[in-house]
Amino acid sequence: MISADLGRKLEGYVAQLVKTGRYNSKSEVLREGVRLVQERETRLAALDAAIARGLMDAEDDRTVSASEVFDRLEFKYQSLVQTKE
């Protein structure tokens, strides 16, 4: 079992959430908060991994210039416009 001192401001906020019926208990509020932190940390870890992959690609010269990407996108979207006309 975890015991935590949230401080007066957060404790008051948690109590208000329970009082209004948004949550059934303080524990429910805290579990939701920890779940949200866990989700955020998971997304941040995925972002860090993607950045690391991108940096490795750049170091190993596995990149495409921005102008080449823009040219491909322009061609793609011009083709889409022409097929709808």
Rank of each mutant, 00 (worst) to 15 (best):
L6D: 03
G7P: 01
G7S: 07
R8M: 08
R8S: 11
R8Q: 10
R8Y: 06
K9D: 15
K9S: 14
K9H: 13
L10W: 01
G12I: 07
G12V: 08
Y13P: 01
V14M: 04
A15H: 04
V18T: 05
V18Q: 01
K19D: 08
G21W: 03
S25E: 09
K26P: 01
S27D: 10
L30V: 08
R31P: 00
G33M: 10
V34A: 13
V34M: 15
R35G: 08
L36M: 11
V37K: 01
V37A: 11
Q38F: 02
Q38M: 06
E41G: 07
T42K: 03
A45H: 03
A45C: 03
A46M: 04
A46K: 05
L47R: 13
A50C: 08
R53Y: 04
L55S: 09
D57I: 06
A58H: 13
A58I: 10
D61N: 03
R62D: 11
E68N: 10
E68L: 11
F70T: 12
L73I: 08
E74T: 05
K76F: 14
Y77A: 04
Y77W: 12
Y77D: 12
Q78I: 10
S79Y: 13
S79G: 15
L80W: 04
V81P: 00
Q82E: 14
T83H: 09
K84V: 15
